Computed example of a mutant assay.
Amino acid sequence: MEMLWPSPGVEMTDTELEALYGYPADRTWVTANFVSSVDGAVTVDGRSAGLGSPADKKIYLLGRDLADVVLVGAGTVLAEGYRGSRPDVARRERLGLAPELPIAVVTARGTVTPDLPLFTDTAVPPIVITTARAELPSLPAEVVVAGEDEVDLGVAVRELEARGLRRINLEGGPKLFGTMVAAGLVDELNLTVSPVLAVGDAGRIAHGPAGAPADLELRSVLRADDVLLLRYRRRNHS
């Protein structure tokens, strides 16, 4: 991967990518990871995999390897066929991180079932973040109640923090991301722009309640062939 900005022409090593995409060590931090087409589509044929590339996969896996937990909505778990994470244990141990990487799934209505690969094909039990009114089946997971009718995402983040899970890798979907942005809970966005015009009726990466736009500053731009990898941070948010 070649850096276009702020240091043009630099070929990035894995160690340099780890430093570039690393989390702050002194606070809880939410980094969102998304891929979109040039015309803003978040999926092709209903799945983000249709926009993928080797470069996007590399940064996607790096985002997981650097995190304490993956945060994802139940709709994305179902649409993308989520399984338990398989991080690079050697890398995580070298970086001083726990070898296990749990997945925390947000479901206000209790739409996950114990037969999903998320529960049957995993080395570490997931965390299910839900509401008091959700009617969940018995699940092989840690269940966290964060709200009565709707999931209070601020509470959800604090519950993860209380478990020592401070590096939060937000993988979607658009509704969860949009609601997190509206609540001021997203610190950083890693966005891969796929060189595709998807057209169609696919949604965009964020969908949720209207509010004041979140002002971002560009932190770095990488290129891998025709793919752009952009890293943004909330402005005035060091």
Rank of each mutant, 00 (worst) to 15 (best):
L153Q: 01
P174H: 09
I168R: 00
P174E: 13
R166W: 11
L176H: 00
L160R: 02
E150I: 13
E159N: 13
E150T: 13
T179V: 08
T179A: 07
E148F: 14
L176K: 00
E159H: 14
A156K: 01
G173C: 08
G178W: 04
G172C: 04
D149K: 10
F177E: 01
E171C: 02
D152H: 11
V155R: 13
R158T: 15
K175R: 14
T179R: 08
E161W: 10
F177L: 14
E150N: 09
A156Q: 03
R163M: 13
E171H: 05
R167V: 05
G164C: 09
G173K: 01
M180L: 13
L165H: 09
V157M: 07
V181E: 00
R167G: 09
E148I: 14
D149S: 15
V181N: 00
E148D: 15
L165G: 12
E150R: 15
R163P: 12
F177H: 10
A156F: 02
D152V: 13
E161M: 06
M180I: 02
I168H: 03
T179C: 00
D149F: 12
E150L: 15
G178M: 02
R163E: 12
L176N: 00
F177A: 09
V151T: 02
L176R: 00
G178D: 04
V181D: 00
R166A: 10
V155W: 13
R158P: 12
L153V: 03
G173I: 07
V157Q: 09
G173N: 01
G178S: 05
G178E: 05
R166N: 08
V157A: 10
G173L: 03
G178A: 03
R166S: 10
M180S: 11
G164W: 05
L153N: 05
V181T: 03
G173E: 01
N169R: 10
L153M: 08
L170R: 01
L160N: 06
V157W: 04
V181M: 02
E148C: 10
L160I: 08
N169S: 14
A162M: 00
T179E: 08
R166C: 09
L153D: 04
G178R: 01
G173P: 06
L170W: 06
D152A: 11
K175H: 13
E159Q: 15
R167C: 09
R158F: 11
A156C: 06
R158D: 15
D152F: 13
R167E: 07
E148V: 15
G164N: 07
D149Q: 12
L160D: 06
N169F: 15
R167H: 09
V151F: 07
R166V: 11
L165D: 08
D149W: 10
V151Q: 01
E171P: 04
F177N: 06
M180H: 07
E171Y: 03
L153A: 06
I168S: 03
G164I: 03
L170A: 11
V155M: 12
E159D: 14
K175T: 15
M180V: 04
A156P: 11
L176E: 00
K175L: 13
M180Y: 03
V181K: 00
A156L: 06
V151W: 07
G173T: 05
A156I: 02
V155D: 13
V151I: 06
G172D: 01
E150K: 14
G164Y: 05
E161F: 11
G154I: 04
R158I: 11
G173A: 04
G164K: 05
F177M: 07
R158Y: 10
R166D: 09
A156V: 10
A156H: 05
